[in-house]
Design a protein around this nucleic acid. Structure first.
Lengths: 121, 121
DNA sequence: TGACAGTTGCAACTCGTTCGCATTAGCCTT
DNA sequence: AAGGCTAATGCGAACGAGTTGCAACTGTCA
């Protein structure tokens, strides 16, 4: 458990948004100038592999991260501002499970993203 | 409407799967050796911008394409085989629209992917 | 047939992410 | 407190998908 790792973990724990690797790097760097981008990437990978954080690939090319301890939710992405809003619908979850089951599958994970704009804009 | 474009269009029209750019390049190259990867990318972009084909970004990093003339559907992806199965659920579509509307948004497009495995495997 | 806009191939570039490698930090044991 | 071994670090170079600048070429229409 190195100094750099501690700082990155602290930043992740305090993030309530969906930052990308570069954003996390800057937040960590501000707390401790000895943190490098490589280490941020390495730590993110480690944590994502262990399920401690979640990696999201929205349609912008780069990955965004969030804490995995919160309960499951899906995302609504404002295509005009980039803002990410979380939501959860038990009804949709059930329909998904039914669709998979009808075809002989079980769901391992799923991705539901609504790309939206403000009504009337 | 150049020769290369024609070949790429022919390949796309004849594709009933979800190939990536490289795969399309190889299919087109097999029909006409004067097709380059650049042109494949340029043509795909052109067609996707015009809505003539659809670009999907599954969780593998690269984009996959399919004809847009078929009616709307979502995807079920077998994580063991990579096989992509299409489905559609009007109920889910309606729930999505309701969720967006409740928050003051309208849906521009959406992405629903179920990553699944065969039951019991 | 001539000419101009649009398209092409190639190589060089971008951007997010990963990797190789020499160095260093953490931590155990004595 | 010192040594020693492993794991983690920073740096820069490399990766892969996709894009772009440019000079050469094609299609099309007069």
């Amino acid at each position: 458990m190195t100094q750099q790792r501690k700082v990155i973990l602290r930043v992740l724990a305090g993030a309530d948004d969906h930052p990308d690797a570069n954003e996390l790097y800057h937040r960590a760097y501000a707390l401790d100038g000895s943190v490098s981008l490589s280490t941020v990437y390495r730590t993110l990978r480690l944590l994502a592999d262990r399920g401690a954080i979640q990696r999201h690939a929205f349609e912008e090319g780069r990955a965004r991260f969030e804490n995995a301890d919160r309960e499951h939710h899906d995302h609504l992405i404002d295509i005009e501002t980039g803002q990410v809003i979380e939501f959860h619908s038990e009804e949709i979850e059930e329909l998904q499970a039914r669709i998979a089951a009808e075809r002989g599958y079980e769901i391992v994970r799923h991705k539901l993203e609504l790309y939206v704009k403000k009504r009337g804009s």
